[in-house]
Write a protein that binds this DNA or RNA. Sequence first.
DNA 1: TGAATAGTGTCTTTGAGACAATATCAT
DNA 2: ATGATATTGTCTCAAAGACACTATTCA
Lengths: 206, 206
Amino acid sequence: MAQHVHGLEDYPRPSVAVDTAVLTVAEGALCVMLLRETGKDPWRLPGTFVHPGERLVDAATRALREKAGVSSIHPRQLHVFDAPDRDDRGWVMSVAHYDVLPAASLASDRVRLVPVAELPPLVYDHAEIVAFAVDAVRGAYRGSPDPSHLLEEPFTMRGLRRLHEAVLGRRLLPDTFRRAMLSGLAATGELFAEGRGRPAELYRRA
Amino acid sequence: MAQHVHGLEDYPRPSVAVDTAVLTVAEGALCVMLLRETGKDPWRLPGTFVHPGERLVDAATRALREKAGVSSIHPRQLHVFDAPDRDDRGWVMSVAHYDVLPAASLASDRVRLVPVAELPPLVYDHAEIVAFAVDAVRGAYRGSPDPSHLLEEPFTMRGLRRLHEAVLGRRLLPDTFRRAMLSGLAATGELFAEGRGRPAELYRRA
DNA sequence: TGAATAGTGTCTTTGAGACAATATCAT
DNA sequence: ATGATATTGTCTCAAAGACACTATTCA
């Protein structure tokens, strides 16, 4: 990479960070993964500064692996938070990212899963980043069945509906939900019985 | 602003630029404002590096005023383009922005309005930025009447429809369009006659 | 059999899309 | 009157929402 070519050395540059809101569903609620450096710091999202030659998505992935022990992640860009005084360490822009992962892959003693409806105070503008991420994920779950692959296949219609109810934060009518999702599903023909009642058919994503 | 505090001085930093796609409607087509430094350079979007303490939106506004003579602009953030080799001068990220302005306010000998359907080759990834901007603007014009205030009030339903047809790049049915837009409009009660035919009612945005 | 759960039938409402009819003006 | 344009009526179709019904299983 050619550094210090004409036009680039004249400007002071900002530090560019990435911060990622990792969302999941745990105990029937949409949760965000938070961590804190020490026991008394406020909660924060995992983030890091971008290294030279690194893509933003790779920086976000690296931060999650190193700081939260999370792998197999594919962060997506949300928004740049650029208030000059947002970070008291200096001029730092944060490119917010988000991703959605199964809660099982977030098991670590370094992190805590917190329902997005009960957020504690977060550093800087991290609460705003969570709000952006929640909007993006809820939008995706309105239109298609489990776009983030939180469920293991195959799954029942009831399981899929419970997941969507957790993500959206509201109850869904079983019949309306079924008809909205069927076009994006493939029936396996297999059945799954759980306790009483008629067994449910098992589906995969189409 | 506190510079060189712990943790910030250790990392080489990228140059952060803003590039803005200014869209408008001219001669019945959605156009983007392009400029070039010299006569033989390829076409480009107006952009600049972000100055210390400056917000991205202010940098974009400054670039448009200085390089294209455009004022009264309110750029909105689209996406960060961060390929490490996207700019041959070095490590440069570009935060893409867009805005929509009346063609009359873009009159300048430094710029050219080009229909987005007939883009010439652009520098770097500027064609991709234009594509992002076109998607955003078309999405906004699908749902509500002239959200970017391109039309002077009051206007006729026909004028509004011609504008939306230009933005979306396809013909719209007069009656369907009218019914889709009426909820976002306020009828003035005044009429406007243009040549033959029944005079059209004049509307304002609701 | 009865309770519980899964799935379907169907009615209503809403809106898009499309075609046809009516209204109002210039010539 | 005739042509041109504006506006409304109405038909069809599809999808969401909601309620009621049928189907299948366990206790």
